[in-house]
Amino acid sequence: MHAEAKKLAEAKYASLDAALKAVLAGKHRVPKNLERDKYRHPTETLKFFGLTPKLTVLEYGPGEGWWTELLAPTLATQGKLLVTTTDPKGPADARSTFYGQRLARFLDRSPELYSKVDRIVIDGKNPKFGLENKVDLVIVMRSLHGLHRDKLLPGFLGEAFKALKPGGVLGIEQHRAKADADPDKSAEQGYLPEAFVIKQAEAAGFKLEGKSEVNANPKDTKDYPEGVWTLPPTLELGDKDKDKYMAIGESDRMTLKFVKPKK
């Protein structure tokens, strides 16, 4: 497996299609991550954002590394991947420290794939990237509800705007609330209204370049006992009504592409 991972990371891919064909089939992938491909549409989503193997990409909030697993080998030879992380050496009882340690374990387990990934340590309560006009693409996947809930969304968008080169892209995937939902209430359930997200990004200086329905799911009724976490992959209710929620699948999600104007 290590030899294959090394081969993946050292390849020079002629296109995103070529890269993802190899990477999606890689043995380095966590088995449960493969099962989510049918919900997450990685090739279509990344193509919509305009990813190529030669870009410098900042992934905000990589979580357990679902997208990192694909981005790192795709960008290893000709591009660059940066990921945000909270401090793994923070207070032992802080949840942010646990998240930082979890990401560190993920990245450290396969240096063949992840040694070239730059880790941007941020304060989860006041995220600053320390980047200016250095990044081609910022992606933030299913995280905006938490940023809004914690009153960090304007600050995050401002940092993303500063980090991007003129003409750079902000790619957003976010659980989509009903159009008339109150953002403050829906964020507690993991969702945000699409028009609200667009308004916030435009207020930060971004221009909406396009929308995609590749991650839409009309079966998602958005009214569950434990919010979006009732659905897979979390299945917060365990075996209770599991078949019902598995039949719905993962959430209905907006997929938005914003551009930092060149002037």
Rank of each mutant, 00 (worst) to 15 (best):
E64P: 00
G65C: 07
G65S: 09
G65Y: 13
W66H: 12
W66T: 06
W66R: 09
T68C: 05
T68D: 08
T68I: 04
E69P: 02
E69V: 07
E69W: 09
E69A: 05
L70C: 05
L70R: 13
L70Q: 09
L70Y: 09
L71T: 04
L71N: 07
L71W: 02
L71F: 11
A72L: 07
A72D: 08
A72K: 05
P73V: 07
P73C: 12
P73Q: 11
P73N: 08
T74C: 13
T74L: 10
T74D: 00
L75N: 03
L75V: 11
A76M: 10
A76P: 02
A76C: 10
T77M: 11
Q78N: 09
Q78M: 12
G79K: 11
G79S: 03
G79Q: 06
G79C: 07
K80R: 15
K80Y: 06
K80H: 14
K80E: 09
L81H: 03
L82P: 02
L82Y: 13
V83F: 08
V83D: 04
V83N: 05
T84V: 03
T84R: 07
T85S: 15
T85L: 14
T85M: 15
T86R: 09
T86P: 01
T86K: 03
T86I: 06
D87C: 06
P88W: 05
K89D: 15
K89S: 14
G90C: 04
G90Y: 02
P91D: 04
P91R: 02
P91Y: 04
A92H: 04
A92T: 10
A92I: 06
A92F: 03
D93P: 00
D93R: 08
D93M: 06
D93V: 10
A94C: 03
R95Q: 14
R95Y: 14
R95D: 13
R95M: 13
S96P: 00
S96Y: 14
S96W: 14
S96R: 14
S96Q: 15
T97F: 07
T97C: 03
T97A: 01
F98V: 12
Y99R: 14
Y99K: 13
G100Y: 00
